[in-house]
């Protein structure tokens, strides 16, 4: 009946029922790339580098309403040695920057990273003395998730984009994709000029910068209040 009738009766004994019924083949043909990518993308183990508000949303996406386990990511790997994807959720001050870099260096290849939320991606509202202005100055980032904080759907979408990225990888380009300059371990990803370019003040923080360095006298600090 059905498929089994049309398939040629091969070496398999008729009593051994295959996936498609008795006599069907017990193997599949596929590309090695597709098979490996399929395995990788459906069992991503995230390393939750949660610091602030975004970490709470990350917990919410792991809880029952959003259920990250549907995508094979319920196994939060708190050890970087077993993790595949680093989720940097929350603001990263300079004091924490070497920790983030070390955790990234400790993760084995292949590895991906997600910058979750405005603060991790660009510093957000915190254009101040203590904050890293975007973790892409410290580590390479694959996916940026906007939002303050992003909703759990946003995080899940970001993880699915990582899956999409994995799906298009090929072993033939393994060394190209996975290349990491060993000299760059424990060093910032961006060079000095790049850091300055990436972290320049914009929007409201330009005005704050001018006030704080005295280039612009704030309306609040009139001469009366200073004397």
């Amino acid at each position: 009946m059905g498929l089994s009738d049309k398939l040629p009766r091969g070496g398999a004994a008729p009593t051994e029922g295959g996936m498609f019924g008795a006599g069907s083949p017990t193997f599949l043909t596929s590309k090695v790339d597709a098979l490996i990518n399929w395995g990788r993308l459906n069992s991503l183990w995230p390393m939750p580098f949660g610091t602030a508000c975004c970490a709470i949303e990350m917990m919410a996406s792991a809880a029952s309403n959003y259920d990250l386990a549907r995508f094979g990511m319920e196994r939060m790997s708190f050890s970087p040695r077993q993790a595949d994807v680093l989720i940097c959720a929350g603001r990263v001050p300079y004091k924490l920057a070497p920790v983030l870099r070390r955790i990234w260096d400790q993760m084995p290849q292949p590895k991906w990273s997600i910058s979750m939320g405005a603060c991790a991606s660009s510093g957000g509202v915190f254009d101040v003395y203590s904050m890293v202005q975007g973790i892409d100055t410290i580590i390479p980032v694959d996916v940026y998730i906007p939002g303050c904080p992003p909703r759990p759907e946003g995080l899940i979408y970001g993880l699915m984009m990582i899956q999409e990225k994995i799906r298009q990888e090929s072993l033939s380009k393994h060394f190209e994709h996975r290349a990491e300059d060993p000299l760059l371990v424990a060093r910032p990803r961006a060079n000095a000029a790049e850091v300055v370019g990436l972290t320049g003040p914009f929007g409201n923080s330009t005005q704050q910068e001018q006030i704080s360095t005295g280039q612009l006298v704030a309306p609040a600090t009139t001469d009366d209040s200073l004397t």
């Binding site: 300079y94 254009d127 003395y129 203590s130 202005q133 410290i138 300055v196």
Partner: peptide
């Protein structure tokens, strides 16, 4: 100053 005394590159380094 709000953004610190050193440049961002120096702070990162």
């Amino acid at each position: 100053p709000l953004r610190g005394r050193f440049s961002r590159a120096e702070q990162t380094r």
